[in-house]
């Protein structure tokens, strides 16, 4: 079994484990952030480049360091490999660069975004981002599209992680959406705005790390931190029926899959990913449809958790340098 050292922590893992998975086994700060990698979806990862790490020693056999930072989600560990994540200042700087790239065309419309509070990009930019954007050009915009009756695609917010495409490939019966165009105008879409029509298409909402794919039945109903998440289950022939209900009083506002520490869908006791079918997700919106197990444990650092508010510090805003930039200033 190969031994790998990440930020000074050594762990022995199975052959073929990626650096990111090994770092997650160690846990905590050591695990690099991942926007596109999703362990339950094959061939995902490698696109967003936020999980880059520095390999200072290739392996026991070939101790040369790797010349470039590597995507930890797609690089398997070798025996004796030494990896730096948080401990390499140049790498943290490089990652901040990637976060900046992800943010330059992101609308930052968090105040009206349904994903706010559960958004991975929010967490990432809170940790690595600059307080001020250096990008003073017009941001890329797309029209909002309804793909089907239940899913809203807000392409402007998308960071092209390809997770939803992988869901369509691997969880749904057929893939009807994909990436159109190329470069910075490429977009997730269905051909001629066809509806996503599959029993498991709703899972694209849960895998989306940002607010690009949101639940139309929950749209503008509530901020997620005002809801009360509870674990619930029901007997369903199509899916595992294990979910989290986001409730307000007796009303079920939203149904989503159970997510683990890394924001990925939890496995069922049988060991399969606990995807939900569209019937459970969109139609069972009454508390009587579900057996409620109890309050969902939410990470105490999450904004959904109430204690979070105690730690919020007052923001200082410097108004001396503010200037208005007209739309046609430099375009």
């Amino acid at each position: 079994m190969p031994k790998v050292t990440i930020d000074g922590h050594t762990i022995e893992v199975a052959e073929g484990t990626t650096i990111l998975e090994a770092a997650r086994m160690i846990g905590g700060e050591v695990a690099p952030p991942a926007m596109c990698f999703y362990s339950k979806l094959k061939t995902s990862g490698g696109y967003c480049r936020t999980c880059i790490v520095k390999v200072t020693k290739g392996s026991e056999k070939d101790p040369r360091p790797m010349p470039k930072p590597v995507a930890s989600c797609r690089t398997p560990v070798m025996d004796g490999m030494e990896v730096q994540n948080k401990t390499a200042p140049d790498l943290v700087d490089a990652r901040a660069g990637v976060v900046e790239f992800l943010l330059i065309n992101h609308p930052l419309d968090c105040p009206i975004c349904d994903q706010a509070g559960e958004c991975h990009l929010q967490d990432l930019s809170y940790e690595h981002g600059l307080s001020k954007s250096r990008y003073d050009f017009k941001r890329r915009e797309f029209d909002k599209i309804d793909i089907g009756p239940n899913i809203k695609l807000h392409m402007t917010r998308c960071i092209l992680c390809y997770r939803c495409v992988k869901v369509a490939e691997q969880v749904c019966d057929s893939r009807v959406h994909g990436v159109l165009n190329r470069g910075d105008v490429s977009e997730i879409s269905t051909h001629i705005e066809k509806a996503l029509d599959s029993d498991f298409s709703g899972n694209v909402i849960d895998v989306c790390p940002v607010g690009a794919l949101t639940d139309r039945t929950f749209r503008f109903k509530s901020r997620v931190w005002f809801t009360k998440p509870v674990d619930a289950h029901r007997d369903c022939k199509k899916c595992c029926g294990r979910s989290v209900l986001f409730m307000s009083g007796q009303e079920v506002l939203r149904v989503s899959v159970r997510k683990d520490t890394w924001g990925e869908v939890e496995n069922t006791p049988e060991g399969n990913p606990g995807w939900l079918c569209n019937e459970c997700r969109f139609e069972k919106k009454s508390a009587s449809d579900w057996t409620i197990e109890g309050v969902r444990n939410i990470d105490r650092h999450s904004v959904i958790s109430q204690n979070k508010y105690l730690e919020v510090k007052n923001l200082k805003i410097d108004v001396s340098n503010q200037k208005l930039i007209g739309e046609k200033a430099h375009n």
Binding site: Y47, R49, F101, F137, I159, L160, G183, D184, H330, N331
Partner: peptide, 28 residues
């Protein structure tokens, strides 16, 4: 390079366009 970037990974997708816009700004 901005036109030909495939758009798969973020530094190239966003960075090439940004560089083009900055150069356009300087040229203008």
């Amino acid at each position: 390079y901005h036109h030909e970037s495939c758009g798969q990974c973020s530094p190239c997708r966003e960075g090439t366009g940004w560089m083009e816009k900055l150069l356009h700004k300087i040229l203008d």
